[in-house]
Design a protein around this nucleic acid. Structure first.
Lengths: 198, 198
DNA sequence: GATATTCTGTGTCGATCATTACAGAATAGG
DNA sequence: CCTATTCTGTAATGATCGACACAGAATATC
């Protein structure tokens, strides 16, 4: 391919954009901020990512397939669905608070919770959040099929419940909750597992 | 007091501002939008509310003392703390989804979850959210004192857990969850009450 | 009724926003 | 080497943002 070669690392720039969007949201991260954080001038940025909206969607996908995936993969970990859900919530407790390298909260849980966001982003974010609900439903339905959970279990309700715990933990992480704080909430949530005594 | 009398109803205007901020967030609601919704020209608006930031804080307080209070008052309803928490979550399930008169979600739970908001608003919103946590802690601590809950109960963790359920329900309401959806999640959450069998 | 005071409406302020024209620089293919 | 192509940097675009100057209108007090 002819033409002057790109002077910046596209993946590194996307990672920087992800971190800024993660911290400040869509409207809060201006193109100026993004250019600074990515180390790229705006014409190069537009040539590589098309628009701010497209850049956000790319950064969001990047988040979902790296940071987000690492936590939600835990749902498949463990011999039982109960262990999977517990692993998920404990991983969330470990990852949601602010760290040296990552902002607090979760891009998937906390993006587009007001109507100020572009419609295409709201649509995509909602889709991914509903996929989280689906993955919980699938794991719990399998547990019903295997006999781990009673046949009368309301899988949809139980899935929504555990999703809400995860999402609420993300909000509390934004408010400064520590790993220990969230671990306590996660353990309390596991007491709701059908069949567990109190 | 001398001077030309105000031609608009300050409380009605504040209510309109609250509804718009509730739906669109701080940055999403422009002064133009607000003027239209409130039926007021901007100089009158600034004379009555000082600034956009101050207007948001006033609208937020209005929300907290009306819409929010109506739900969180339920925590005191019922003979036991368990009944109080259940009433709270069921009221949330009834109120959080979009209705004819109100937007979906909760201004307290969903405001300022990204760093794009003015610092004064972030501070105030966080303060109110922590007050919700405190009110849960107080109710549960009283239940421990009265013997309703075991002395070994981790009140802080249990409070954080129920708060997270509420907050997560607010996010799901934004994503279109129905009253029935949220009622299921609330009921599942009550199964985590210490001492309840599964 | 005169005056001080407060509100309303028009119009606009500088700042910031996302986006892009344009020209120069660097590469690939011929 | 020459040309087409793609990137980089400077600078500017129109739009929109929050906020306000100004003049006219409406009230209270004296």
């Amino acid at each position: 391919m002819a033409g002057r070669p790109r002077e910046f690392d596209r993946d590194a720039a996307l990672e920087a954009a992800m971190l800024l969007f993660w911290r400040k949201g869509f409207a809060g991260a201006s193109m100026n901020d993004l250019c600074d954080a990515m180390g790229v001038r705006s014409p190069s940025l537009y040539a590589a990512f098309e628009s701010k909206e497209a850049l956000y969607l790319a950064a969001f996908q990047h988040y979902a397939t790296t940071e987000g995936q690492a936590v939600w993969d835990k749902l498949a970990d463990g011999a039982t669905a109960r262990a999977g859900v517990e692993n998920l919530l404990l991983a969330a407790a470990g990852n949601l608070p602010k760290s040296r390298t990552a902002p607090a909260g979760c891009m998937v849980a906390l993006s587009a919770v007001s109507d100020e966001w572009p419609a295409s982003i709201t649509r995509e974010v909602r889709k991914v959040r509903l996929e989280l609900l689906d993955s919980l439903c699938a794991r719990l339905a399998a547990a019903v099929a295997s006999g781990e959970l009673p046949g009368a279990t309301d899988v949809a309700a139980l899935s929504r419940f555990y999703l809400s715990v995860f999402q609420g933990m993300a909000i509390q992480a934004k408010d400064g909750a520590t790993q220990a704080d969230l671990k306590g909430a996660a353990e309390a949530a596991m007491a709701a597992w059908p069949g567990d005594g109190g």
